[in-house]
Nucleic acid binder design. Structure first.
Lengths: 170, 170
DNA sequence: ATTTAATTGACAGTATACTGACAATATGGC
DNA sequence: GCCATATTGTCAGTATACTGTCAATTAAAT
């Protein structure tokens, strides 16, 4: 076997790297979401925030961040935009002057109801090129991997249960 | 079965969506890359660009964009930063006054050689929570999916071959 | 050759992401 | 009650991403 030659760099150092593939796939996923949902003025991140505010009325920004595992700083801007579109409102929490609680407006609830079919279509298109059995396998492995790597992310996902009593116990 | 109730929105609309999982996994991948490579002043995108300039000395920004499937506008800034760090140089193309050709500097080649083990470690850590067989399966499905969805992305990947004679034939 | 098309790099504008800091506020130990 | 500490929202700074536009330049059409 050849021994002391310096390893030649090839494009495989990029193309076969899982990180590169995850990046590409994320970009494709966003492109498909935007294409399917272009009739609605919502990005994937804004959609996720809206769903979460819908299922957790009165949640605050920090807990929202933990429930969808998005950066708290980033979320500030996302919330601003949702507010500017009048899809949500912010109300000061009576018992904690720091906190602002988030609620869907009627327009927010309406757009969420309307956009759902398009979102589903986009999600389906992402995996459509694979055979049905392969879709299941990929989704299962991906779910496992995200879960097992949870603590490696800057903003680990904290399930709703773990947050329910954050205000009192910690 | 209940029939006409409006479908209640649950967090599954977020958590089980492939797009959400790809986003989370991409963020985890970047976090692991940055952590493993913190001794080197390179981001994942800058690393990919550097590898490509290394394997394609004298490539221009537009072709670089196509070879790694990164947005051309974004790449302009990436190139600026690599230039500021003196890892690459730009030389005007003699036969086309619009084009600026990209070359690695010695410092660029050195950092690329040095960072490789850390990059490999980061890539390995992303999949490490899975069993070896599952890693292979996931990587295979992900590679297929990215390839099959190539045209759905804003900047489809164009292999090096398809670009070799872009300057003459198109 | 002259008009038309396309290409290249650049730029402005918007939207995620992350880092690190900060003031206001709340909570804990004592 | 007082002080150290933690939390909340915010902000500034950097780095991807994408859209759309533009001037300079080149290539293609005729």
């Amino acid at each position: 076997m050849p021994s002391s030659k310096p390893t030649p760099v090839t494009m495989d150092a990029v193309y076969t790297a899982p990180g590169y593939l995850f990046r590409r796939m994320q970009q494709i996923a966003v492109a498909l979401f935007i294409e399917e949902c272009k009739a609605f003025d919502l990005t994937p991140v804004q959609y996720a925030a809206l769903v979460t505010i819908s299922t957790h009325p009165g949640i605050d920004a920090t807990r929202l961040s933990a429930v969808i595992a998005f950066d708290r700083s980033t979320l500030g801007n996302v919330i601003e935009r949702l507010q500017a579109k009048e899809y949500i409102v912010r109300k000061p929490a009576p018992e904690d002057k720091r906190v602002k609680l988030l609620y869907l407006t009627k327009a927010g609830a309406a757009v969420l109801g309307d956009i759902m079919p398009s979102v589903d279509k986009a999600q389906a298109r992402m995996l459509q090129p694979l055979k049905p059995a392969d879709r299941k396998t990929l989704l299962s492995l991906l779910t496992q991997l995200v879960d097992l790597n949870n603590e490696s992310s800057r903003v680990p996902l904290r399930a709703e249960d773990a947050l329910e009593h954050l205000g009192r116990s910690g």
